[in-house]
């Protein structure tokens, strides 16, 4: 629907003008407004600091009536991100019960980044990582940092 394109264009313009901290957003392909390429800096004071994560944001045809989907393309060691090739992030706002047509992509990106700063082990998709996060924080941070070096270092 035409309305959807208009809304997406507006959101893209707003995000470019007033970027959420540590995030840059661009269209994967200028002719397709439904696929956004996101670069997210690991928050300071988190084991992900210094890392740069590539994410893919996909908007459904029925956007904004249906929520976007967010996927980590860079591997990340995190209790709320699936440790597979899907790299799906479990975010409340992305669930259809919580998503509202007036919710914005910038809010999704902010929430996603704050989840990097503060993982939510009680709502985990990777339970073993969540267990480690709760019971052996040191080891969790060590592995998370190691993964940052291995997969998310900026020059790569």
């Amino acid at each position: 629907m035409a309305g959807s394109q208009r809304r997406i264009a507006k959101e893209l313009a707003e995000i470019t003008k007033d970027t959420p901290e540590g995030v840059t957003a661009n269209l994967v392909d200028e002719s397709d407004v439904y696929r956004w390429s996101i670069l997210m800096e690991g928050p300071e004071d988190s084991p992900y600091a210094g890392g740069q994560f590539k994410l893919l944001l996909t908007l459904p045809v029925d956007y904004p009536f249906k929520p976007p989907a967010l996927k980590f393309e860079t591997k990340i060691y995190h209790p709320n991100v699936t440790n597979d090739d899907k790299g799906a992030m479990c975010l409340g706002i992305l669930k259809s019960e919580e998503w509202k047509p007036s919710s914005k992509i910038s809010a999704v990106l902010r929430t996603a980044r704050s989840l990097l700063a503060e993982p939510n082990p009680d709502d985990a998709v990777e339970t073993s990582i969540a267990e480690q996060f709760k019971n052996d924080r040191k080891e969790f941070e060590r592995v998370a940092k190691e993964w940052v070096t291995r997969y998310a270092s900026k020059r790569a």
């Binding site: 309305g3 959807s4 208009r6 809304r7 507006k10 009536f65 047509p101 007036s102």
Partner: peptide, 28 residues
Amino acid sequence: ICCEDEPGLETYAMKCGHRYCAECYRHY
């Protein structure tokens, strides 16, 4: 929701005051 600003647009809000165009409300 749809960013439509055409004059004469039908709109709707419940008592909470969150107003959207009637078309978007219906679709939702």
